[in-house]
């Protein structure tokens, strides 16, 4: 595999073809914040917190470091006024959904994000997709998925699958950067139990 030479925050980096900017940065100890990244999962680019500035072929682009492949003579800046501002606004928007998330609060301190800037929306989920992807890619159970779209998009468990698989697994719980996932599961569980008793009632009455 051919080697690629690029620059990240002024450091010269040698990377392999097909690596992402995020991987190349980590290999030389430059840290880029991430929320939806996980070593066992394919890059997804949902949170955009890893956005960096990249100069290539005479133009500067804002790219998601977790998705963007490295290329020769690329000059990457992981911290700049522009990048910091983007991360700040993203964090503020996510904090409107999940104000109590420790992971978000830590990043908010670094980037000076104000958790009360946007009106609170009590979804508690930032749609990072870690649980959905972990269940599908690693466990191959597909017990949790995305529903609806746009502002109404949310994660939810497929009750039929959840009742079989989730009780003994729950491996997705610690992945969640907020507490939304656990709440969704508890809700699903609560919704799953009554039908069992109420179906009996229905069967007896015809």
């Amino acid at each position: 595999m051919s080697e690629i030479l690029l620059q990240i925050d002024g450091k010269k980096v040698t990377a392999k073809e097909g690596m992402t900017i995020l991987e190349a940065a980590r290999s030389v100890g430059v840290s880029i914040p991430t929320l939806c990244d996980h070593e066992k999962l394919a890059p997804y680019g949902a949170c955009r917190v890893c956005t960096v500035e990249a100069d290539a072929r005479g133009t500067t682009n804002l790219v998601a470091a977790c998705l963007q492949p490295v290329e020769n003579d690329l000059v990457v800046r992981t911290r700049s006024e522009k990048v910091d501002k983007i991360r700040k606004v993203l964090l503020e928007q996510m904090l409107a959904h999940a104000p109590d998330s420790e992971e978000l609060q830590e990043l908010a301190q670094v980037y000076g994000a104000d958790k009360d800037r946007f009106e609170a929306e009590s979804s508690f989920c930032i749609l990072c997709g870690l649980c959905v992807r972990y269940c599908a890619e690693v466990k191959k159970k597909h017990a949790v998925g995305f529903f609806d779209r746009g502002a109404k998009r949310e994660i939810d468990f497929i009750p039929e699958v959840a009742i079989r698989e989730c009780w003994d697994c729950k491996e997705c719980f610690p992945l969640c950067p907020t507490s939304a996932l656990q709440a969704a599961y508890v809700l699903t569980e609560a919704l799953m139990s009554p039908p069992a008793s109420s179906t009996k009632g229905c069967n007896s009455c015809g």
Binding site: H142, V144, G145, F146, F147, E160
Partner: peptide
């Protein structure tokens, strides 16, 4: 196709 994928599409 997993049910989660079908639900994702049909609600989208």
């Amino acid at each position: 196709v997993p049910m989660s994928q079908i639900q994702h599409i049909t609600t989208f």
